[in-house]
Design a protein around this nucleic acid. Sequence first.
DNA 1: GAAAAACATGAATAGTGATTCATAATTCAT
DNA 2: ATGAATTATGAATCACTATTCATGTTTTTC
Lengths: 207, 207
Amino acid sequence: MAETGTPAKDQTGREPKTARGEATRRAILGAAEKVIGRQGFNEASIGSITREAGVAQGTFYIYFSSKDEVFSELVAEMGRMLRHVISEATGGMADRLEAEREGLRAFLTFVASHPELYRIVQEAQFVDPDAYRAYFRTFAEGYRQGLAEAAEAGAIRPGDADVRAWALMGIARALGEYSVVFGDTTPIDEVVDIAHDLIVDGLRKRS
Amino acid sequence: MAETGTPAKDQTGREPKTARGEATRRAILGAAEKVIGRQGFNEASIGSITREAGVAQGTFYIYFSSKDEVFSELVAEMGRMLRHVISEATGGMADRLEAEREGLRAFLTFVASHPELYRIVQEAQFVDPDAYRAYFRTFAEGYRQGLAEAAEAGAIRPGDADVRAWALMGIARALGEYSVVFGDTTPIDEVVDIAHDLIVDGLRKRS
DNA sequence: GAAAAACATGAATAGTGATTCATAATTCAT
DNA sequence: ATGAATTATGAATCACTATTCATGTTTTTC
């Protein structure tokens, strides 16, 4: 009966039923994150993943039904971790503009310490478009709501929450990429302050 | 601009020396844009590209030395076209903030009419990281300069031009993706106005 | 108008790597 | 302890596709 916890997908690689199996599955997932994050989806062979995990090639298929499946799982994991980290950071904040700042800081901090996961999400656009869109839609929807409520409450200027949500996500993403992909070394706190200043007050000079 | 015409790279597929060859090369490049843009780099086989172009498989290698090479060429082409379109749109503008608006509009318009090229640039991050970084660095540098000069001249509030350039590129990119990848149908002009309002005046409510 | 140069063909090659499977080892339940 | 379930192995399979090449066609050159 029970059978909760089962993602209800297809006949995917079955869940381990032993501590030993659980450990092996984790090892493979961790190795996949490392190897795919480093070499990209196509360069990362099942062989290189299992080698990194220290198991035989066939073992992979005990826990995952395909190369794509392990990838999707990583994308979903990234989404969960990120949402957790951000909501943790902005949880009790009353001031929307401050929440904006702290959310950005949490995002950039997380990304800096998980560059592999970051690359994986980017690549998901091509490897697993559904997972990619789900990832962004989930974020965008939460963001949109927050902005809409803040505008409603008069905490920020009114304006289309949808487009704003995408624009602000775009800033976060670009700055994450700036450091991860382009290797910029400006300290996160500085980047956050500069970007937050732009987000809050815009470019226009005031008299 | 000028340029010699010979990219000076390695022993790449040679340039055509005949009108006929020129036409074939163009056909292949166009087919590659269509097929790779639609199916992604890895799904797009040389066979599918040459079929689309209406030539034999071997013909591909008369003009390109590898699958990667045709890809790089497309990325470079996208960069050139985009820079041209944007500088065309913002060329004589005195007001920096207006230039910002028109640049964004030009970008979104271009992207909407060339969704394949857009996807290709995104994918370049994994297929040809050097081309990808070159593409963004070139944009970022131009943007940075524009912002720095505007700040210098007192046309906008002072602030780190580098981070701002990346943030603003991020907005453009996210909004482009919003329409191309996520199929949003909000008219470009509306999106531009909302985003420009945010860029210029920020989120903060003023008394 | 003939040899040369350029272009085109598509079947063959050749390397790759995801997935399967027969077999073996380990762990669990009783 | 012992049969059943679970987990692990890694060599073999199998499909796929980038690239090459020997040959044929078209265009240019003189």
